[in-house]
Simulated scan of single mutants.
Amino acid sequence: MTKTTPPSILVIVLNYRTAALSLVAAQHAVAAMEGLRGAVRIVDNASGDGSAEIIEAGIAGAGWERVSLIKSPRNGGFGAGNNLAMRMGLPDGSAPDYIYLLNSDAKPRADAIRLLMEALEAAPEAGIAGSRTVGADGVLHRTAFRFPSILGEFEGSVRTGLFTRLLRDWVVPLPVPEDTARVDWVAGASLMLRGRMLDRIGLFDETFFLYFEETDLCLRAAREGWHALYVPQSEAEHLGSVSTGMQSWARTPGYWYDSRLHYYVQNHGRMYAVAATLSRAVGETIWRLRCGLENKSRRDPPGFLRDLLMHGARCALRCRSRRKIRLADGGPGRNDSLAAGDPT
Score class of each variant (00 low, 15 high):
residue 177 P to K: 09
residue 173 P to I: 01
residue 184 D to T: 03
residue 95 A to E: 14
residue 177 P to Y: 11
residue 187 A to L: 11
residue 168 R to D: 11
residue 117 M to H: 09
residue 142 R to G: 15
residue 91 P to R: 09
residue 174 L to P: 01
residue 150 I to T: 08
residue 171 V to S: 11
residue 142 R to W: 10
residue 103 N to S: 15
residue 113 I to Q: 05
residue 117 M to N: 06
residue 119 A to I: 08
residue 171 V to P: 02
residue 175 P to F: 12
residue 102 L to G: 01
residue 121 E to A: 11
residue 151 L to K: 11
residue 99 I to C: 13
residue 90 L to H: 04
residue 141 H to L: 07
residue 158 V to F: 01
residue 193 L to T: 09
residue 191 L to R: 09
residue 98 Y to N: 07
residue 105 D to K: 13
residue 168 R to V: 05
residue 106 A to E: 02
residue 177 P to Q: 10
residue 191 L to V: 08
residue 184 D to C: 06
residue 186 V to K: 04
residue 146 R to D: 00
residue 128 I to G: 02
residue 107 K to I: 12
residue 134 V to S: 08
residue 161 G to P: 12
residue 123 A to Q: 14
residue 116 L to V: 05
residue 116 L to R: 03
residue 138 G to P: 07
residue 122 A to V: 06
residue 127 G to R: 11
residue 175 P to L: 10
residue 158 V to K: 03
residue 156 G to P: 00
residue 143 T to D: 09
residue 141 H to K: 15
residue 143 T to N: 05
residue 180 T to K: 10
residue 183 V to C: 01
residue 161 G to I: 04
residue 122 A to W: 07
residue 158 V to M: 06
residue 154 F to A: 01
residue 101 L to T: 03
residue 95 A to M: 12
residue 178 E to S: 13
residue 128 I to K: 06
residue 112 A to T: 01
residue 160 T to F: 15
residue 128 I to T: 07
residue 142 R to I: 13
residue 145 F to P: 00
residue 180 T to H: 07
residue 171 V to W: 08
residue 181 A to E: 12
residue 155 E to R: 08
residue 92 D to V: 01
residue 184 D to E: 07
residue 172 V to G: 01
residue 129 A to E: 12
residue 125 E to F: 06
residue 121 E to I: 10
residue 181 A to Q: 11
residue 176 V to N: 10
residue 115 L to T: 03
residue 170 W to G: 00
residue 118 E to F: 06
residue 193 L to V: 10
residue 133 T to W: 04
residue 190 S to N: 15
residue 131 S to L: 00
residue 188 G to I: 04
residue 159 R to D: 09
residue 99 I to D: 11
residue 114 R to W: 06
residue 173 P to G: 07
residue 145 F to G: 02
residue 142 R to F: 03
